[in-house]
C-alpha cells in the first residue's frame, strides 16, 4: 500500500496584469504516491509550469490546498517554504542554473550550506553526489569548463545531495543533445530505482515514455491521467 507524497485539492492559480485576469490553473485535483515516476505533459501555456512551481513550493496557489508529505504547505510563510524546499525537494532546471563563479562541488554543496552542515561534511557529500552522476573527476571544474550534458549532471547531483524524497525536473533535457538526454534520463531512472519520487515536466514523447504515469495538461486542467502497464505492475 503506497502513501501519497503530493496531494492537490482544488488548486487554482490566477495571474493578474492590470485589469486582465488569467487563470493558469482551474481546479486541479491530483495525488502522487511515493516512489512514483510521473511525467507532466502538455503544450506551452497549458499550466504545467505553474503547477510545477506550486508543487516545488516556489509559488503559492490562489486557492486550494497542497499537502507535501502530509504537511499543508499552501499557507506557509516564505521562510518556512524555503526550509521545505531545502529538506524535501531536489530541483533540476532546463537552464541548469549553476553559479558560474563556483566550481562543480561548490555548486553541489549549496543546498547543504543552507541546511547548515559543517564544511568538511558538505564537501564529502558533494563529491559523493558528483561520483554518483559519473563526474568524480570533474569536481574542481567550473560550469563554463563543462559540456551541457555534464552541467546538467552537476545539477542532478545538486538535486540529490540532500537525499530529498521528491525530485522535480522542469524540462531537464530541453537544452541537451540526444546522447546527453539519454545520460540524464538514465540518471533519473536510477534515482527512481533507489526509491525517490520523480516528477518531470516535458513535451518530449520519449521522455514521457520513461515515466510510469502521464498527466496531460490543457488549458489549466488535467485532461488525461494514464498509467503504463509497468507502473501499474509496480503498484
Amino acid at each position: 500500500m503506497s502513501t501519497p507524497i503530493i496531494t492537490l485539492d482544488g488548486i487554482r492559480k490566477t495571474y493578474r496584469t492590470g485589469s486582465l485576469e488569467f487563470e493558469a490553473l482551474c481546479g486541479i485535483d491530483a495525488s502522487i504516491d511515493e516512489h512514483e515516476y510521473v511525467a507532466v505533459v502538455g503544450p506551452s501555456g497549458s499550466g504545467k509550469s505553474t503547477l510545477m512551481n506550486i508543487v516545488g513550493c516556489l509559488d503559492n496557489p490562489t486557492e486550494g490546498t497542497y499537502e507535501l508529505a502530509g504537511e499543508d504547505v499552501s499557507t506557509m510563510s516564505e521562510a518556512q517554504l524555503a526550509e521545505v524546499r531545502n529538506r524535501r525537494i531536489g530541483f533540476v532546471f532546463q537552464q541548469f542554473n549553476l553559479l558560474p563563479s563556483l566550481c562543480a562541488w561548490r555548486n553541489v554543496e549549496l543546498p547543504l550550506v543552507y541546511a547548515g552542515l559543517p564544511r568538511h561534511e558538505r564537501r564529502e557529500r558533494a563529491i559523493g553526489a558528483l561520483e554518483r552522476v559519473g563526474l568524480g573527476d570533474r569536481t574542481e571544474h567550473r560550469p563554463g569548463e563543462l559540456s551541457g550534458g555534464q552541467q546538467q549532471r552537476v545539477a542532478v547531483a545538486r538535486a540529490l545531495v540532500t537525499e530529498p524524497a521528491l525530485i522535480l525536473a522542469d524540462e531537464p533535457t530541453g537544452n541537451l543533445d540526444s546522447r546527453s538526454t539519454a545520460d540524464v534520463l538514465d540518471l533519473l531512472d536510477e534515482l527512481h530505482g533507489t526509491g525517490r519520487t520523480i516528477v518531470v515536466i516535458t513535451h518530449e514523447p520519449d521522455v514521457a515514455a520513461r515515466a510510469g504515469r502521464n498527466l496531460v495538461f490543457r488549458d489549466g486542467q488535467i485532461v488525461s491521467d494514464t498509467s503504463s502497464a509497468r507502473a501499474v505492475a509496480a503498484r
Binding site: 524555503a82 524546499r85 531545502n86 543552507y114
Partner: peptide, 9 residues
C-alpha cells in the same frame, strides 16, 4: 536559485 535551494529571505 539560492532561494529555490533553501535560502530564506
Amino acid at each position: 536559485l539560492r532561494k529555490a535551494l533553501g535560502a530564506t529571505p
